[in-house]
Each structure stands twice: as structure tokens, then as C-alpha cells.
């Protein structure tokens, strides 16, 4: 299994859907971090068959909300002094800023450059563009 004990202080992003860890690596902008990052791909998991894992060494402050949207199965393990200090499950974030894009041609975001694409979580549990109310369909983007 994994060498979680090789991290003294940091984060383990576990149960990532196999094959998607590089996308998460880029979305979290881990390439810009000044600390050790290990990407472990396609390991066997009891729960999900195959999974990816990302381990990040060091005390960092990441906005992990985005992960709840991308892959709700992901779990976060916080490591302190070589031990598991906390396990977190993810929830769907209330808003997503520049994570997904509005595709409505009538929306102001399609007419002007430089507008943040902001979506908010509706009561029904889907994401709608705050400008035009268009629902985001993951399959169409």
C-alpha cells in the first residue's frame, strides 16, 4: 500500500477516480507550489477498484471546494507529525468561480472578455450561471 508515513506534514487527496489526477493537479495549480507533490496513479483500492492519489508535503492552504464538484468520492487526509490528524469528506461548494464555463450564447459572459464565470449551487443541487440562470450540463462541455 501507500507510504503515507513518508509525509510528515501535508495532505493526501485520496480516492481520486483513476486517470483524473493530472486534471486535479492542474486545477489546484499544484505545479505552482513550492513543495513536494507525489502523484500516484492507478493503484488498487478496496472500495473503487482503481484510484489515483495525490500527496502534498508541507503546510499549505488550498481551496479544495472545487474537488467536491469534480469528484465527490474524493477524501482528504490531513497529516501532522507523521500521523493522520483529520479525515475530511467533501461537500458541493456553494459557488464555482472560473471552474466551469457558461455556454449560453445569450449570456453576457459570451459577449465580453474577462468576466469571471461564476456558478451557484441551486436548491435542486445543480449549478446555474449567476448571470443568465443557465444550468450547467457536464456532458455538454
Amino acid at each position: 500500500m501507500l507510504y503515507i508515513d513518508s509525509i510528515q506534514n501535508g495532505l493526501v487527496i485520496d480516492h481520486i477516480q483513476a486517470g483524473t489526477s493530472m486534471r486535479i493537479y492542474h486545477l489546484l495549480k499544484l505545479d505552482r507550489l513550492d513543495c513536494g507533490v507525489a502523484i500516484i496513479k492507478n493503484v488498487r483500492s478496496e472500495k473503487y477498484g482503481r484510484k489515483d492519489i495525490i500527496k502534498i508535503e508541507g503546510e499549505i492552504d488550498l481551496n479544495l471546494d472545487i474537488l467536491g464538484y469534480l469528484d465527490p468520492n474524493i477524501t482528504i487526509v490531513v497529516i501532522k507529525d507523521g500521523n493522520v490528524a483529520e479525515k475530511k469528506s467533501l461537500t458541493l461548494p456553494k459557488t464555482l468561480t472560473n471552474v466551469i464555463r457558461c455556454n449560453n450564447p445569450r449570456c453576457i459572459t459570451s459577449a465580453e472578455e474577462g468576466i469571471d464565470h461564476i456558478f451557484s449551487l441551486s436548491e435542486k443541487g445543480c449549478y446555474r450561471c449567476i448571470y443568465c440562470d443557465e444550468e450547467f450540463h457536464p456532458s455538454r462541455s
Binding site: N104, I108, A111, E112, I130, Y131, C132, D133
Partner: peptide
Amino acid sequence: RHPKEGAPLR
């Protein structure tokens, strides 16, 4: 008044 949706919110 604007032809694009969300312009007044912006």
C-alpha cells in the same frame, strides 16, 4: 436594457 442576459447584474 441589454440584449445579453446578466448584463445589469454585471
